[in-house]
């Protein structure tokens, strides 16, 4: 008996072909292991199914149908929702706004976060460094809606801190959120302030994993300052930079709360003035819940999803060629 035992694949052996087919896991130990495993993931799986996958599937369904929340009848319309969208100037305007927003916010946040991380790393042995780190991270843990309201006051053209600072610097004052040209940049400023802490912490984590001896080898090799940073540090934190850029891109493409809060309220409906801050996620929200065109909104969501997926894949392809060196 003992001599035959090793011929049986071990229950825990993931590589054995038998375990790729769960219906072959007839042995009691395997069944019990599977039950326990699925039992453990079940609660979160249920939450995900009900609140995430099911709505997503439903969205996929109504994007191709004419669907009304007040009637049970729905008709298949093929790509008509998409065709309608492409004919709407506001849809293109929202894509343009989103693009502008992403193209500014992602590089600025990434660079600022990297700079802050390098600075915090330099001073990490000084007393109070932990506090500085906490202060940089703090905005990110504040609720967007609450701090957005504070920033509405900061951006107030008459009494706000922003214009006060410009005045003190002898610069022309701006209309900020009430200006067609400055409303979106105002949102960008808020977003950078709110999110830079998260990316700073990510960069700090990345910098902490740098192989110390490689940096010392660079020092011994006579490199310092910019050369050492550009040729050694930057390539080595490539993977974390990639992660930060992807995360920032996805986050900014989906920005909603601060735009809704900052540009709503005293300035009329969110997305203004004159649709200058109407990004795609805001338009999706308004289309669905203001104008009740759920099918159109769903189609728009699909487009946004496809865009994010495409951009992330493009970033990944780029990163595979440039960033990962192992």
């Amino acid at each position: 008996m003992y001599r035959q035992a090793p011929a049986e694949p071990l229950a825990l052996d993931q590589t054995s072909p038998r375990h790729h087919r769960w219906w072959h896991a007839w042995d009691p130990a395997g069944v019990r292991e599977a039950l326990v495993g699925y039992g453990l993931v079940l609660p979160s799986l249920l939450v995900f199914l009900v609140f995430y996958y099911a709505p997503a599937m439903f969205l996929l369904y109504i994007a191709f149908f004419h669907w009304n929340i007040f009637s049970s009848a729905s008709t298949f319309v093929g790509l008509r929702n998409f065709r309608i969208l492409l004919q709407q100037p506001i849809f293109w305007q929202s894509l343009l706004n989103t693009g502008y927003y992403v193209v500014v916010v992602v590089p600025v946040t990434t660079l600022l976060a990297l700079a802050l991380a390098l600075l915090l790393r330099e001073v990490r042995h000084i007393r109070g460094a932990g506090l500085s780190q906490a202060l940089v991270f703090l905005p990110h843990v504040t609720p967007v809606v609450a701090t957005s309201i504070i920033w509405v006051w900061i951006f107030d053209p008459n009494f706000g801190l922003a214009n006060f600072v410009l005045h003190a610097l002898h610069l022309p004052q701006l209309g900020w959120l009430s200006s067609v040209h400055w409303a979106l940049p105002s949102v960008m400023i808020y977003t950078v302030w709110h999110s830079v802490g998260l990316y700073t912490v990510l960069f700090l984590a990345g910098l902490a994993t740098l192989p110390k001896q490689v940096l010392e080898a660079a020092q011994i090799d006579g490199a310092r300052g910019w050369l050492s940073f550009r040729r050694v540090v930057l390539p080595l934190i490539g993977p974390i930079t990639f992660f930060v850029v992807v995360l920032a891109t996805i986050n900014t493409m989906q920005t909603f709360s601060q735009i809704y809060t900052l540009t709503g309220g005293p300035h009329g409906g969110a997305g203004g003035p004159a649709f200058s801050t109407t990004t795609d996620s805001l338009l999706i929200y308004q289309t669905a819940f203001l104008y009740l065109h759920f099918s159109l909104a769903s189609a728009m969501s699909l487009i946004l999803f496809a865009l994010i997926l495409a951009i992330t894949l493009a970033q990944k392809l780029l990163a595979d060629r440039m960033v990962f060196y192992r």
Binding site: P211, Q213, V214, E216, A217, A218, Q219, I220, D221, G222, A223, R224, R231, V232, P235, L236, G238, Y325, R326
Partner: peptide, 28 residues
């Protein structure tokens, strides 16, 4: 350190993982 002009070999070699051998040698 960068001004001392010494050559050092580390226990784990500490080569620049993202550079070719040529660039590793050339960096100094």
């Amino acid at each position: 350190a960068h001004a001392r002009n010494i050559g050092m070999v580390f226990q784990n070699y500490a080569l620049y993982p993202h550079m070719t051998v040529f660039d590793n040698l050339a960096f100094g």
